[in-house]
């Protein structure tokens, strides 16, 4: 029985992933977000390369990371907020579709979309390898870090989207929370709770990846942050359903 339920939830999850991908990629969002991301990222990163004169991928990652925390909530704002607004969520609840499948499926689709939108940034690695001799380690680790950060920010964006029926509100709440996490380490030297707060800083975690280190605690942090956001989002969805 348990096994049966598990396969059912898994099947539903994949169905949700497929549907979300179609819905996202038939909307203008990923195209506009992708174009914006690469215009800004390209300009800033090429300036960095010019200033440093070294085949360094490192500066790419904090730039991309910051752009992602601003843009991923835009990709995720629709997911739950819009379904709650239009009532299509009711149809799924009436089936009923397991909340877990809904939340995980939507998150996975948002994450995959983010990765696809981000993917052309790897062209810079190709350019570096073509024109210079970059260290591969930081490139691999940096992109791994960006992928994990995207997962976490997609989770946060989804959570924000679950809290409201308004897409702009969802995007702004998601960005705000991600921004707090980005700057969590600032001023950590001066307060007693500082070290704990610094542990939540996604920018510090990303910096470690960008330098070329894959640290179990950094990987774990992003995984756990994602899991926490999804657990919270599932509870909110369940709570809004059974008011």
């Amino acid at each position: 029985m348990r096994g049966l339920r598990a396969t059912r939830a898994t099947r539903a999850t994949w169905a949700v992933v497929g549907k979300e991908l179609v819905v996202l990629w038939t909307s203008p969002l990923p195209y506009v977000v992708g174009a914006l991301l690469h215009i800004v990222l390209g300009t800033l990163y090429v300036n960095q390369l010019q200033a440093r004169g070294q085949a360094l991928a490192q500066p790419l990652f904090p730039l991309a990371g910051f752009l992602l925390i601003a843009l991923v909530p835009i990709l995720t704002m629709r997911t739950l907020a819009d379904e709650a607004r239009t009532g299509s969520l009711d149809l799924l609840h009436a089936v009923p579709v397991p909340t877990r499948a809904l939340v995980v499926g939507k998150w996975l689709a948002s994450w995959v979309t983010t990765l696809v939108v981000l993917a052309p940034a790897t062209l810079f690695a190709v350019l570096l390898a073509w024109w210079g001799n970059p260290d591969r380690g930081p490139i691999i680790a940096g992109f791994a870090g960006l992928a994990l950060l995207s997962a976490a920010v997609a989770g946060v964006g989804l959570l924000a989207s679950s809290l409201t029926s308004s897409q702009p509100v969802a995007a702004m709440v998601g960005f705000f929370v991600a921004l707090l996490l980005w700057f969590a380490h600032v001023g950590s030297e001066t307060t007693s709770a500082g070290p704990l707060l610094a542990g939540f800083s996604i920018s510090e975690r990303l910096r470690s990846f960008a330098g070329g280190a894959i640290d179990s605690s950094d990987v774990g942090f992003f995984v756990l942050l994602t899991a926490a956001a999804l657990v919270a989002a599932a509870t909110v969805v369940q709570g809004r359903r059974l008011r």
Binding site: G34, A35, H38, I39, L41, G42, T43, Y45, V46, L49, Q50, R52, G53, Q54, A55, L56, P120, L123, F124, L127, L128, W131, G132, N133, P134, D135
Partner: peptide
């Protein structure tokens, strides 16, 4: 790890990231 960013390379990088992608 030096990177020689000549004018043409710079232009190429900007074209790729700012226009093509």
């Amino acid at each position: 790890r030096p990177l020689e960013l000549t004018r043409s390379r710079l232009g190429y990088a900007r074209l790729l990231s700012g226009v093509v992608v």
